[in-house]
Design a protein around this nucleic acid. Structure first.
Lengths: 204, 204
DNA sequence: TCCTTAAAGCGACGAATGTTGCGTTAAGAT
DNA sequence: ATCTTAACGCAACATTCGTCGCTTTAAGGA
């Protein structure tokens, strides 16, 4: 029996206004700077508190862990405009893509590495990582559909499998095996994959 | 000027005998159990000390960090007899290999996942991870050389590239992208790679 | 058997990491 | 302009983590 005057209390962000927003902005900026300057290992609640000027307790209450901070930064900075380069051919598109992946993976300190490391600790970070990569693959699918439209690839080529084949060796080599990888090698995975795809290796 | 009576003090393990060995065995057993029962997140110095009956201080002195404990366990349990299955054909050899990788990656709690997570924290763990994978690739190279001997592959096929192509999508999907992977999918990466290799995709 | 001395045990300490209760501030509604 | 209250600031507390000085044990050599 709810009285008619009873205004809905509304769950969810009850007061997401001015101050809270400013605090969040300050904190996320601090997280980004700390990460860029000192790397993931130095990314601690206290360090972020000190740099942002926001109290420790607030961070513990709103984010609880460093991983949560990182996830929030990721969601906030998510670039909705990114698109793979359009070079006019599958092989060169994949080369451009692989070079971008390699560059991002090799930057120091590596944000990508930080996200992966975090994904091994908290489920939330893992979920963010999944979303991030899913989004990436989604956007990159056009590389394949364009190639199909140009007649370079069979019409039933699976974009996801093709992209996995091209990029996964880079991640594997750089993050799991932890060995260096030259740009030429990255290029080679692109060309090999493109050739295999054109031969129908990734047809459904 | 060393006096003739002056016995060499000998650097290195001065007294690796009975007690030390027993302590190490107890500790490593405890690490393995803790890891298997509660997973990597629960793997703490204190937990290992409690379970093994060895004092905290000893662990801090001899191993310093949990990652070092994990590395030591790995080195101690290293299986020098492992070899890839010989099924008589490249495709089926790769399928067997991928199934083994998938099974190991999917066990819960995952030792493989723990090692990877550790490799993002300590250089020592990273080095161990590199050694582990290098050793694995080394042993798996016979799969390729056998295929060459059978005439299935060009003589100048690069074993390492071929093996990367076959297995890296599994690691990528399971540990980076964190999505499930069916056995059929794992098999498919094996067959696709075998076909590409036979077409000369991994020639030097 | 006895001696020497690494290595393990032990407790106490300091620092870092989280937590809690309470007072204060300001967003948003009236 | 005033009121309500979510969110922040603050200080004190609890816990975990890693270190240090000292004592005790036992491995390995004489």
């Amino acid at each position: 029996m709810t009285s008619p005057v009873d205004a809905t209390p509304l769950p969810g962000p009850a007061r997401p206004g001015g101050r809270s927003a400013r605090v969040r902005a300050d904190v996320l900026r601090a997280v980004g700077e700390e990460l860029a300057e000192r790397g993931y290992d130095a990314l601690t609640i206290d360090a972020v508190a000190a740099r942002s000027g926001v109290h420790r307790t607030t961070l513990y209450r709103r984010w609880k862990t460093v991983d949560a901070l990182l996830v929030d930064l990721l969601e906030a900075n998510r670039d909705d405009t990114w698109a793979p380069a359009d070079t006019g051919a599958l092989t060169t598109d994949l080369i451009a893509l692989n070079r971008e992946v390699r560059t991002a993976a090799l930057e120091e300190p590596s944000v990508m590495s930080a996200v992966i490391a975090a994904s091994f600790r908290s489920p939330a970070a893992a979920a963010a990582q999944t979303r991030l990569l899913d989004d990436r693959y989604e956007r990159c699918a056009v590389v394949v559909t364009r190639a199909i439209a140009r007649g370079e690839l069979p019409a039933d080529t699976d974009p996801h499998r093709l992209l996995m084949a091209a990029t996964s060796p880079l991640y594997h080599q750089l993050f799991l095996r932890r060995q260096p990888m030259t740009e030429a090698e990255a290029d080679r995975w692109a060309t090999t994959t493109a050739a295999a795809a054109e031969a129908g290796a990734f047809q459904a």
